[in-house]
Design a protein around this nucleic acid. Sequence first.
DNA 1: TATGAATATGAAATCGATTTCAGGTATTTC
DNA 2: GAAATACCTGAAATCGATTTCATATTCATA
Lengths: 329, 329
Amino acid sequence: MRIKDIAKLAGVSPATVSRVMNNNGYVKEDKRKAVLEVIEAVDYQPNEIAKSLKSQKSRMIGVIVPKISTETASRVVAGVTHVAKTAGYQVLIANTNLDIEEEIKYLKFLSNKSVDGIIMMGTEVTDRHLEVMNKLTIPIVILGQKVSGYTSIIHNDYDASYQMTEYLINQGHKAIGFIGVDEKDYAVGVLRKKGYLDCLSDYNLNGSDGLIAIGDFDIDTGFKMMKKILAKSQPTAVFAVTDHLAIGAIHALLDQGYRVPEDISVVGIGDIKLAEYLNPPLTTMHYTFKTSGQMAAEAVFDLIENNAHKGEQLMTSFQLKERRSVKHL
Amino acid sequence: MRIKDIAKLAGVSPATVSRVMNNNGYVKEDKRKAVLEVIEAVDYQPNEIAKSLKSQKSRMIGVIVPKISTETASRVVAGVTHVAKTAGYQVLIANTNLDIEEEIKYLKFLSNKSVDGIIMMGTEVTDRHLEVMNKLTIPIVILGQKVSGYTSIIHNDYDASYQMTEYLINQGHKAIGFIGVDEKDYAVGVLRKKGYLDCLSDYNLNGSDGLIAIGDFDIDTGFKMMKKILAKSQPTAVFAVTDHLAIGAIHALLDQGYRVPEDISVVGIGDIKLAEYLNPPLTTMHYTFKTSGQMAAEAVFDLIENNAHKGEQLMTSFQLKERRSVKHL
DNA sequence: TATGAATATGAAATCGATTTCAGGTATTTC
DNA sequence: GAAATACCTGAAATCGATTTCATATTCATA
């Protein structure tokens, strides 16, 4: 069923059908009725692709995620799809598995007019990324990293980390271990570490090398890094920059015969869904990933519809979830 | 940059440009080279929408998920995007939040030729669904439920449930509680319950009413249902049909002063990522959700490219993960 | 009543690709 | 050397909508 068929059935021209479907231009009441009746009768659904070609809008946005099977990513995507729905947009998902080449490929691919805007959930934003991004004509918003010149939704990683460290200090801890990630991920690798170090130094404590370990994002890394720290120093608390890392750390501790939090306290960041069901329930910073996704989506739509100016930096909030993985000394 | 511009720059017709881009038809070597050079020079990317309009193929598939922020759904989507990538397809995601009207809306919407095929991750497949599905001309595959006439990827829920129950019996348990979900979800609500009941009856045990509780899918339901069971009976083991339910159950038990598994054993189904990091590590059935997603994607592509016949039923495997939430009596 | 404005409608152009068709030239083949 | 075949190319039609443009009709106002 094409618009031409509808026109024929209703005894009008395709132009008239288009006018009633889109509610613009003049159409006499009787013809409008005739058209609507035919549309109803045959359940006519206009071809979206043809519409897109003509309008140069696809009403689709692309979301580039490092790993969709991750709780963080899926929460972000949930937020994005939520606002996309009310805005009448579809979301195309590109899962890169952290491969930078893939990210760049998708950045290019998604932009051939097949998508009206892009949300990129970045871990690392390289010069190569920027080079490609600068060539694109469609709006991009970056989620999770601050990229100057681009609208970004960022988590207040520095403050969250500072405050978490401060919380530990307020609980009486002085030897605070730190499990972080590579600095290629600026937000998590650099900012969270800086928050920790700055806080320590503000309180005249020091994060000696033996207290700090850096690795990947997975649970197993948390496990290994914890053991590494234990081999060199004797912390009373450990701050892991993600909940998964914290889980790994707790298991390393348990494995070595320590009790958490009685012997050593552990905290994370992120507040994964199961954090409160862990044993012990994990004290962590609640991050609003779904809200970030919503904000990112709202930002792209604003950009697409030109109500916004590119380059805004939006910061999401965080909240300490005090549970039972920290002991007050 | 349109094909026309490339043609002009290369001193040929658009038809020739199209021929070199798609590698079909005859093109003299010198012209081919000229065209390729121009393409390279201006980094020409053909408009995918125009291509789709002409070819009546979008090289996109839609995935309808009940809740993307769920670990199950995101693992499935990871599998889908993985094979989509190698097949050169994009994935459109539709998140319905378990709303049947939304599912039906998307089923219709995605099909206006804007998508070449659909994967529907269903919980409940109603007559309304079928009515709409029967009208669609593009292939659909159902994931997680068996729908006759449609290619479906199903988990062997009955066997998994039967074997889990049998495992508990083999560990010496006789009073086995059951936390299930509503029968509207046939796979989880009916099949998993049937597997449990049949196994019990095969071993001449009975699942009295006091041992069985039915509710929603969330952790909190597991918590409440466990308390409900405890109020009426005295199981030595509890079989929850999902890991989340099991987590809720464990916490209810802990809350009432029971030890798991010393006093009461608990098992789940699904094997969420954190199952092995729970306390105690949860004994559960490992389900291959990512693989299911891959199989579903392979099935749609087969259907799209007409190498397959609609209606196949593919069953995925499962595997008992024996951890430490069950005590041998 | 004349005339400018508002209303109404369809033919045709358009979006950016692909593909058919028709008309070439070069190369085989007998 | 003629006929058959292969190779090459571009003009124009096509996909299915929207939109401009031209034209016709109705309405309002002086």
